[in-house]
Design a protein around this nucleic acid. Sequence first.
DNA 1: TTGAAAGCGATACCAT
DNA 2: ATGGTATCGCTTTCAA
Lengths: 353, 353
Amino acid sequence: MIGISWERSQERNFMKSLTLEEIGKMAGVSRSTVSRVVNKESNVSEPVRDRVEKIISETGYSPNSAAKALASQRSYVIGLVIPRNVEAFFEDPYFSRLTQGIAQATNHNDYTFSLFLLNTPEVENRIIPRITRPGFIDGLIVQSTSADDKLLSKIVNGNIPYVIAGRPLGHDELNYIDVNNIDGAKLAVNHLAKLGKKRIATISGTLDISPGLDRKIGYQQGLINNGLSIEEDLISVGDFTQEGGYHAVGQLLEHKPDAVFIASDQMAIGALRRLKELNISVPKDIAIVGYDDLPPAQYVDPELTTIRQPILRFGQAAVNMLLKKINDNNVPAEQLILDVELVVRDSCGGKIN
Amino acid sequence: MIGISWERSQERNFMKSLTLEEIGKMAGVSRSTVSRVVNKESNVSEPVRDRVEKIISETGYSPNSAAKALASQRSYVIGLVIPRNVEAFFEDPYFSRLTQGIAQATNHNDYTFSLFLLNTPEVENRIIPRITRPGFIDGLIVQSTSADDKLLSKIVNGNIPYVIAGRPLGHDELNYIDVNNIDGAKLAVNHLAKLGKKRIATISGTLDISPGLDRKIGYQQGLINNGLSIEEDLISVGDFTQEGGYHAVGQLLEHKPDAVFIASDQMAIGALRRLKELNISVPKDIAIVGYDDLPPAQYVDPELTTIRQPILRFGQAAVNMLLKKINDNNVPAEQLILDVELVVRDSCGGKIN
DNA sequence: TTGAAAGCGATACCAT
DNA sequence: ATGGTATCGCTTTCAA
């Protein structure tokens, strides 16, 4: 039972919150001493510390964040920025997971997590100043994109520590973290080649962002490594959406592929839908490998063989990188690439690994 | 091109941010006047305003958030709290959408959005004090749950404006917003009844939270309204997950239902999977209505007839309610219930409406 | 070990 | 219309 009636919570206007000074008065010490106790500094005598802590817990005192931030020049807030041209942010389970991973890691480190969705130009114009404003955010994680250099340059040039999530095309020198997209695509192609596939097609993502480009590069390298040749007709460009996969797979069929590496599970799901409509059997007539290994990969028929990205770990690592920057802005820019792995399910037939 | 080299961004340590005072000095006015200009107050003469605005835009000055928050006792931050026992937060697309809706609405109102995932008891203990600390958050939206009264009472008793997202069981007097779950379930049952179904079963959600309970109540009322009787054997309790739906539908089959109202799309997807395995055809052998109408509902075979919740609008309305509270804490607690609608697709057969 | 006092950078009231 | 100044609640030297 909550057990508190409505009139009680109206008292709000009358109960102003306590301050260090007041706690100090109650404990018969100065505000400085209370501050030391609150911040667990060592130079406080046992008896005083006990006395103060008792009063703090009795009164439920908690320091005022704004005052603390102002005095210490630290807000303990980390922001995640999703630029506008990241399509369908919350449609794609990838972003949900990313958000979850970063939020958890942020909280785990006693920071507060803020999310900025720059979904319209109007919102973008209003939010960017707030994001880059001093005193509110200690550091930013920015989802990498194709074109949003306005934002990125503002952040890179600004005085705020940042980490870019995903290799920023054309700016490999910046501080970023990514998963190994090239390797992931190679793993997929290797798997298909080992199964004896000879005409391995791909549905790539948009090529103006690194996951799109890198997975295509990996696909091509994978073909070469396996003694297969690159055929332009077997390369179709999707847009990371289910609809995109649905349409792209249609185009490919004319060229008789016996397997398709599809650069995201979402596109793979769309492709499976199309293939089912056309009565083309997966994996009997055609083998499919997806990319992401998010929950939907297991809920389609057949279950998707796919590339697993360590998204939660990715979030944790991104936060760690950022904290390093926050604590010492002189550490040089760093690039961190996480490994991925192949998850074999039912969309390729024979299970080998 | 970002076009700024690495050494430039290391200057950070040397470029301290500007203050009102400094801008004032540059413009030959006092800090008070600059403050008035920044806050677009009317009592500033044209020439002075122009002069100051010019300097502000030239220097890129932006007020310090912490100082502003401290002085004005307003942080312009709104938090969304997801208690621990909300299962599988980001597995369920519902929560992604909710987050998106609230984040967008928050930004739209020039507030900053913070997300608190109380995913472990440890994190919960660390975060709750921060959430309820004065000076950092102007208001909270709390996802309603079954058991988390500790948190809820802390917030309700605290001095922080809040809105509960979802009717809090046993506390109808609190400030909350919900969708009409009872009506939604009735819509589903009515639809099935109109199609001539006589043995309409249900897979409910967990009954200790309102969406679970209310949708079951609506199901029962719907049966009665249509002259059908309530049969306990036709009621199975799931847990809002795909796995739950998968298992629950199995139990129901013994009792020969000709239709099932399933209290979430996720459970419906699990049920469809099970039915497919058993070679039971939907909608020929059995009709299905889901609940939520999130993207996956359209990506299963057959596409789900379901109840659509206005989640984005829900987020907007929640933020609006909260802002009302923030701006005047004396407005009485309010309960807002949004309407839902039936979306007819392919999982029930004959299209009537 | 403890206290006094000077900031931090805004707001907002009071003068002029 | 503009400026002066107290204030918000904490951190952080500096003395004692």
